[in-house]
Design a binder for these strands. Structure first.
Lengths: 235, 235
DNA sequence: CGCGCGATTGATTCGGCTCAATAACTGTGG
DNA sequence: CCACAGTTATTGAGCCGAATCAATCGCGCG
């Protein structure tokens, strides 16, 4: 049996301070803590399945998560990522629709489940929290719109360059400029919306052009300004 | 000078009953009405520009609106539509970011501007309204995710078929099965994310296959089940 | 040490874009 | 009411980006 770390307490949870819960009062934090339920996941485990119902949200205490849909040919499309402090499942909860995406861990992770009642209570009683929620949703909506335009209009090379930059912003670089997330070539293809082989060929092009360096699943960014130019992003 | 119809009163505005404002109390409706400002637009007029700031939302009292982004090559990408009872501009308002899209009328329209203060007041004081807002945003987010997957994975033919079905659901059919919105071939291409010529060729294919009939900008749907099959949508 | 999946590379095909040339249509002014 | 100009729609030819298919390579791991 795998040894499981202690379930974190919201009060001391490092993730909380970067999360939507960062401005709760001490009382509210205790409330949240009492209602939550923490679970640990191995790499690659599914947290929830597209199409199912949810009765709460998941807060990422530790780890990295991909959210994806399965297209008609069974191909995965990665919609977004979540990391420490992010919440997932809130879209389906608030719209009262089935989950529009599945979630799976990209590495060993810990997630706390917070029941709907608790979320609704905070929305109703804490205008600050409510406003943060509205803000998060509308921010996401803007991101989604941007992605739609780029998928519709940009060639794969530009989208891949941009994806690398987005991964950098989401997961940051270490001191060696390596993006702090490990994805298979196929997963990268499933973000960009292309074939695995195309990702491989283009990454190898970028390598030749000295924009990146690749070692297994580690990608080191050598020339971010030029990568930005290749990505053709201005905003 | 163009003759302008009377500014509608929220209380009697037909659009209100299908809108997010449908459950306001009489007092709130009066409040809303006092704060709003109605404007009339010709076909093709721009209501707001991507990148600008907003200080309120627009409620469509009459007419049809397209929301779109301009990609790097200057190509328009239509993100969504709004019709009677829909509101636009709320994403930027709530996220406190610049507008992520521009809005333009597809026909003569009337829109009421509701200032931020009024919206915020209703969010703060009317939990029902607040919840509707959260629900709308998260619903939209789900739609956006679905569009992302389809853009990334489906061929143009399927996307066009699906677009026709979406237009049908959004704008309805008249008694002759004609979609009740007039779009140029280029605009259709800018929804689907393809070239104008491709839309023309595929519409002509659909015509040959007896799926649709076309007369100028009127599109009549002859065989919705088969069109659904072509669109390859199951959900 | 060998199995098996993920990564890579090459060859080929094809969907869909671009470019170019008409044709049809819309609104305008005489 | 017609002629003209400027769009918008249509059609054809050719090209190209990217997908698919096939084979090989190279780990990571039991």
């Amino acid at each position: 049996m795998k040894k499981r770390p202690e379930s974190p307490h919201c009060e001391t949870c490092g993730a909380r301070h970067k999360s939507i819960f960062c401005t709760l009062s001490p009382d509210e934090v205790n409330d949240l803590d009492a209602s939550k339920n923490c679970n640990f996941y191995d790499k690659g485990q599914v947290i929830f399945h597209e199409g199912n119902r949810v009765n709460g949200i998941y807060c990422v205490s530790k780890g990295k998560i991909k959210l994806f849909q399965i297209g008609n040919e069974g191909k995965e499309q990665i919609i977004r990522f979540a990391k420490e402090g992010d919440i997932i499942g809130y879209r389906a909860l608030l719209s009262e629709e089935p989950l529009s995406a599945s979630a799976a861990t990209l590495e060993e992770s810990a997630l706390c489940f917070v029941p709907k009642s608790q979320i609704m209570k905070m929305i109703a009683e804490n205008p600050n929290f409510n406003f943060k929620m509205l803000k998060m949703l509308s921010h996401e909506l803007g991101e989604a719109a941007r992605i739609i335009t780029e998928l519709a209009q940009k060639p794969v090379r530009e989208r891949l360059a941009e994806t690398l930059l987005i991964l950098k912003n989401t997961f940051e670089l270490d001191e060696k400029q390596v993006i702090q997330v490990k994805l298979s070539r196929e997963e990268i293809a499933n973000i960009v919306g292309t074939a695995t082989e195309s990702v491989i060929r283009l990454l190898s092009d970028f390598k030749k052009e000295k924009l990146i360096e690749v070692e297994g699943r580690n990608i080191k960014l050598l020339n971010i300004p030029e990568l930005t130019r290749v990505a053709n992003v201005f905003e």
